[in-house]
């Protein structure tokens, strides 16, 4: 445990001693603000809630989270530090978990910095703060799932650009799985069970369910399972490809 904490701390601090943290947070907050106000019509709706704000989280994460996760393992492989790291008394499992947690903690800070939205709606009206808390919880577990996918694919390539593209691609599949576009594609021939499963894999649908205030355990477990699955593959890939 102690080893994971030390690895976590190094990773986490490294976001802030490089420009990554600041650039990311500025972009994230700027884009999220622009989307919420201009595309989501935050004020025009005349409702004191954060629905338009949360609605854009999925799409923003789809593009921005792979930008954080792409460096997690490809950079280690590219610079050779993976050889240093994995010949210390550290297992690949500990390293994968620590790196993931550090990235997650960093993303959580970015999400937490959206608090002015929360203050704003509370100032303007009387929103259901329970729903907003549920939305934030859902957003955090969803970020974790995107990060796990990104971390996993980052270990698949030494090249950060390839890692980024792969992560966006796989994330996109999970994001849009439940949308009519995909469902129509399979509904003609696939059995109903398959369609249900595909629809159930959707990040959007699972996140919507949570952010509407239905803090259902099923949706949380879904995101946690995605994280576990991809981190597990992540560990296998790190062990398999570390010396290539």
């Amino acid at each position: 445990m102690n080893v994971i904490w030390i690895l976590f701390r190094r990773e986490f601090v490294s976001y802030f001693i490089t420009p990554i943290a600041y650039v990311f947070i500025v972009f994230f907050l700027g884009l999220l603000g622009a989307m919420t106000f201009f595309l989501g019509g935050f004020f025009d709706r005349g409702q004191a809630d954060l629905a338009p704000f949360f609605a854009f989280h999925t799409w923003l994460y789809l593009l921005l989270i792979p930008a954080i996760s792409m460096r997690l393992w490809s950079e280690e492989r590219q610079t050779g530090t993976i050889e240093l790291l994995l010949t210390l008394p550290v297992s690949a499992t500990q390293a994968v978990i620590a790196k993931f947690l550090a990235a997650w903690a960093f993303a959580a800070i970015a999400v937490a910095l959206t608090f002015p939205f929360w203050i704003t709606v509370n100032y303007l009206g009387e929103p259901d703060n329970g729903i907003i808390i549920a939305g934030y919880v859902g957003s955090l577990v969803m970020v974790g799932a995107y990060l796990a996918i990104g971390s996993c694919l980052s270990s698949a390539s030494k090249n950060q650009v390839i890692a980024f593209v792969l992560a966006v691609l796989v994330s996109l599949l999970f994001t849009v799985a439940g949308t009519p576009l995909v469902l129509e594609l399979v509904s003609g021939w696939a059995p109903a069970l398959v369609i249900d499963v595909i629809a159930g894999l959707s990040f959007i649908a699972n996140f919507d369910a949570i952010s509407k205030g239905v803090l259902d355990l099923v949706n949380l477990i879904y995101f946690l399972s995605v994280m576990t699955l991809f981190l597990f593959i992540n560990i296998i890939l790190v062990n398999l490809l570390k010396a290539r």
């Binding site: 490294s14 050889e83 240093l84």
Partner: peptide, 21 residues
């Protein structure tokens, strides 16, 4: 693997380290 590394010091090829630190 972990126990055997406790008493080992290794400098890999190219002397990698975390350059931002």
């Amino acid at each position: 693997p972990i126990a055997s590394r406790q008493n080992l010091g290794y400098m890999p090829e190219g002397a990698p380290s975390y350059h931002e630190m």
